[in-house]
């Protein structure tokens, strides 16, 4: 491999690997904090759900999730359900996550609902 190509390749690799680490953190955060209600695979089927009188959102529900902007999702996580006219059963995680973690979590939820649209480059606002 020519030196030029090597530099280009390593630069690309560096660019690609940063989001990968973030994605892993967001996945782990989702598994740690959200999974208990939203389920291991984000289908709204968490272990606590049979005990709840409000059903958590199914994050793999593409049709519904496409009607939500990234701002809506961000607000729901940071300030809790009531901030987006939803249930108090969705707590506010603003004191738990950093600003960066909140942004990454929105990104992670998009991978659960809207992978095709992500690939197409849809602007979720």
């Amino acid at each position: 491999m020519k030196p030029g190509k090597l530099i280009l390749a390593s630069a690309l690799l560096a660019m690609a690997s940063v989001p990968a680490v973030q994605a892993e953190e967001a996945y782990l955060n989702y598994k740690s904090y959200c999974m208990q209600c939203h389920g291991m695979h984000g289908k709204g089927d968490g272990v606590n759900v049979p005990a709840m009188n409000v059903q958590p959102r199914d994050h793999s529900d593409n049709k519904y999730m496409m009607t939500r902007t990234n701002t809506d999702i961000y607000k729901a996580i940071k300030f809790g359900g009531p901030a987006v006219n939803k249930s108090v059963k969705m707590p506010a995680w603003g004191d738990t996550f950093t600003e960066e973690e909140l942004q990454e979590m929105v990104g992670h939820i998009r991978t659960l609902c809207c992978e095709k649209e992500l690939i197409r480059g849809v602007n979720f606002k």
Binding site: M35, M40, V49, P50
Partner: peptide, 23 residues
């Protein structure tokens, strides 16, 4: 540490026939 104690398969059936993660 509930990551070690929750499993998504096999599912438990809820009242509505929906399936949920289990301990």
């Amino acid at each position: 540490n509930y990551l070690r104690t929750i499993n998504s398969t096999p599912h438990q059936e809820g009242k509505d026939g929906k399936k949920y993660d289990v301990l």
